[in-house]
Design a protein around this nucleic acid. Sequence first.
DNA 1: GGACATTCGGAATATTAACTCCTAATTTGA
DNA 2: TCAAATTAGGAGTTAATATTCCGAATGTCC
Lengths: 156, 156
Amino acid sequence: MPIMFTRGCEYGLQAMLYLAAQPPNTRLLQRDIASSLLVPPHFLGKILQVLAKSGLVVSQKGKTGGFALARLASEITLRQIIEAIDGPMFLDACVLGFPACSDSNPCPAHHKWKAIREDVFRGLINQNLDQLRQESPLVIGTLTGVRTSADDGLVK
Amino acid sequence: MPIMFTRGCEYGLQAMLYLAAQPPNTRLLQRDIASSLLVPPHFLGKILQVLAKSGLVVSQKGKTGGFALARLASEITLRQIIEAIDGPMFLDACVLGFPACSDSNPCPAHHKWKAIREDVFRGLINQNLDQLRQESPLVIGTLTGVRTSADDGLVK
DNA sequence: GGACATTCGGAATATTAACTCCTAATTTGA
DNA sequence: TCAAATTAGGAGTTAATATTCCGAATGTCC
């Protein structure tokens, strides 16, 4: 059902962009991130664990705990997030599924796909969180498609 | 595991390119297509049924039966095959999985993804089988990664 | 007509991805 | 020190995808 990434990777990217939308060094609870993004909280917990182990977020246990970006949003790329969750070779395979497709042994779609893949990396995967945030701010409640009580038509 | 398409769609695209690699109007057995491509024969049967119902291949039952392209390879696009198998909206959703992402309500990746998606359609999805065949001929046994008895180093 | 070979189509099974649940470990603050 | 609140991690469950199985329908050839 997802386009290019697994569900877990989508959640991870959303969570990282949500953290990047906060003031620097803001620490958020797993539960609050999940309820803001409307994603399954326990599943998100797993993803955040992976991101913490990869050094992309820092986690803190206990009463004042939570998750925060491990460094500036401008120093975290989508690629780092995707490779941490979905693995490093997520776009290397043949787009048509031929097991032995390669540069020296190309399938009928190989060259065209290769050009597109480079566009995907240049235009999206290699972008950092700050570049994306500047394009369109992440407005929660609008993107999740659900009207919260704070979003009932009144200016907050 | 697949990049953009379901497994069934990959098999369908492979089968269509395999038929397009034959002389025009060649009729092949489901079983022979499956063993050439090294894909599960019964599952391929299902896919071929869908392609037949969509009018992309013609099927013939009985002793001289099999499947053939329903029209010239130059008149069948990848898009028609993909939409027949995976459904019509396969690239419309938000690449980050935000449910309400749209042009008027874009997620941080929306604009960049939109440009890439157009490249994908122009450079790959809207291409026809003949255009792809001309780029790189489909050599069976090489792309499937398995050495057949006819591929043991001797010139056939 | 009858044996045979194929596709057709639905149901059943297997495999993988998505998600939940529970307990342990850590940190804080009274 | 102890209670409370959080993340950590593993095992288990559910849901979706992939694949198989089997009987029916159709077509060919003798």
